[in-house]
Simulated scan of single mutants.
Amino acid sequence: MSMYQVKPIYEGGIKIDLPTCMYTLPNVHQLQAASSCSSEHAPQNGAADPEVRALEARQDEIMRKLFELKAVVDGLAKTVATPDADLDLTVSSCLGSPSPTAACTFSGTADLDVLLGKDMGALRDIVINANPARPPLTLLVLHGLLCQRYRVLSAVHVHSSVASVPPQLLSCLGPRHADGYARNLFQLGFTLIWKDVPKLQMKFSVRNMCPIEGEANVARFLFRLLSPGPSDAAPATLVDSLVDTAFFQLAEGGAKEQAAALRALNAALGRHVWLAGSELSLADVACYCCAVQSGAAASAPANVQRWIKACENLGYFSRAKLQ
Rank of each mutant, 00 (worst) to 15 (best):
P8H: 02
Y10Q: 10
G13I: 10
I14K: 11
K15W: 10
L18C: 06
T24Q: 15
L25C: 15
L25K: 15
P26V: 03
N27R: 13
N27H: 14
N27M: 02
V28E: 15
H29L: 14
Q30R: 11
S35D: 13
S35N: 13
C37D: 09
S39T: 02
E40A: 13
A42P: 00
A42R: 15
P43V: 06
Q44R: 06
Q44L: 12
Q44G: 02
N45Q: 14
N45M: 15
G46M: 11
V52N: 07
R53Y: 10
E56G: 13
D60V: 10
I62G: 00
I62N: 06
F67H: 15
K70P: 02
V72K: 14
D74N: 08
G75R: 03
K78L: 13
V80E: 12
T82V: 11
T82R: 14
P83R: 05
D84G: 10
L87K: 07
L87I: 15
D88H: 14
D88N: 13
T90C: 13
S92R: 10
S93R: 11
S93Q: 12
P98M: 05
P100T: 05
D113F: 02
L115W: 05
L115H: 09
L116Y: 01
A122Q: 06
R124S: 00
D125K: 07
V127P: 07
N129Q: 15
N131S: 04
P136F: 04
L139G: 02
L140D: 00
C147I: 03
Y150M: 00
L153T: 00
L153C: 14
P166Y: 02
L169S: 04
S171K: 12
S171N: 15
S171A: 14
G180W: 10
Y181T: 14
Y181K: 14
K195M: 12
D196A: 11
V197H: 04
P198I: 02
M202Y: 02
F204E: 06
C210Y: 12
P211M: 13
A216Y: 03
A219I: 07
R220H: 09
F221W: 05
L222Q: 02
L222G: 02
F223I: 06
F223L: 03
L226A: 08
L226T: 03
S227V: 02
S227C: 15
P228L: 09
P230E: 13
D232P: 09
A234R: 08
P235K: 04
A236K: 12
A236Q: 00
L238M: 09
S241G: 12
Q258N: 05
A261V: 01
L262F: 06
A264I: 01
L265H: 01
A267Q: 03
G270T: 09
W274K: 05
W274E: 10
E279F: 01
L280T: 05
A283N: 06
A286P: 09
C290Q: 00
S294R: 04
A296L: 08
A300D: 01
W307A: 01
A310S: 07
C311P: 07
E312Q: 07
G315K: 07
G315E: 12
G315C: 06
F317Y: 11
R319P: 08
K321A: 03
K321M: 01
L322H: 02
